[in-house]
Amino acid sequence: MGGLMQVVFDALSLGSLYALGALGIALIFGVMRLVNFAHGDVIAFCVFALLWPSVDAVAIIFAGNLPWYLLIPFALAVGAGLSVLSEVVVFRRFRRANPATMMIASFALGFVIRYFLLMLFSSRPKSISLLPELSQPVEILGARLPLLQLITILVTITVLIGLTAFLRRTRFGLEMRAAAENFTMARMLGVRANRVIMGAFALSGALAAAIALILGSQTGTANIMMGASVMLMAFIATVIGGMGSLAGAVIAGFALGAIATVMQVILPPDARAFRDAFVYGAVILVLIFRPQGLLSARGTKERV
């Protein structure tokens, strides 16, 4: 029983990360059809924002020393700020461009952010201890897991509930959903385009910061590539979930977490290193049968 619960918790916490990432990507895709390849680098940037620039192997913790009630808002603000900045400086000029052009631009922007970090911090991974009190184990239903894992799951559920309430109950959320449905029509009905898009970027950046905090405290290292693998899984989750469908992205994120965790358990030890390759393979199999994703959002299909 304990073993099974362990797997369930592992799957939930890994799935939480993927779901948060997928949500950040799907939010922006929803309002402006941008597949944001820079998302992973925003995650890495948020971790490094807590350090003082240096190329040494030992990180000089700077903002990371703040007490948690200041640290968390600081990180969220950095993520939201960088994300909004990228909108204002880069993506705003691509409003009329086709999605492929925007996608490549975001890929280039991601590289700019990554190599900016490399310039300041070098490419060596650094060890950091972020919120160390979270790594103590707790016991639930016979499974021993670090407190952080539990918090990750709880935070994700809170974020999901909060975001749902925000999108369904507030005026801004309504505007955002309207914009995702039909941007031109929403503008004609008085939705302010720039405000909605900046809101989406801010939310997405804050989600990236949440992932950064979780990843940073989980792995204890800061690495300029650290956002890449989460971002890739998040991308896959948005494709499987049906591009632009927020619910689909979250469900697919959790599903990917579950598949990855189950593979880790059932694969023979020799093959465990290939876990991610098996997950991608499974994804490709899903796409054979449902090329449009599991839940495809309206209006995102290519009109053929």
């Binding site: 999605p99 492929a100 991308f235 494709v239 991610d276």
Partner: peptide
């Protein structure tokens, strides 16, 4: 078989898959 954007992301997954193997 995928449409434009989804195909692009899937090619990215293919790259990661080959690299991981």
């Amino acid at each position: 078989r995928l449409s434009g954007i989804a195909a692009s992301i899937a090619t990215f997954a293919m790259l990661a898959m080959v690299n991981s193997i």
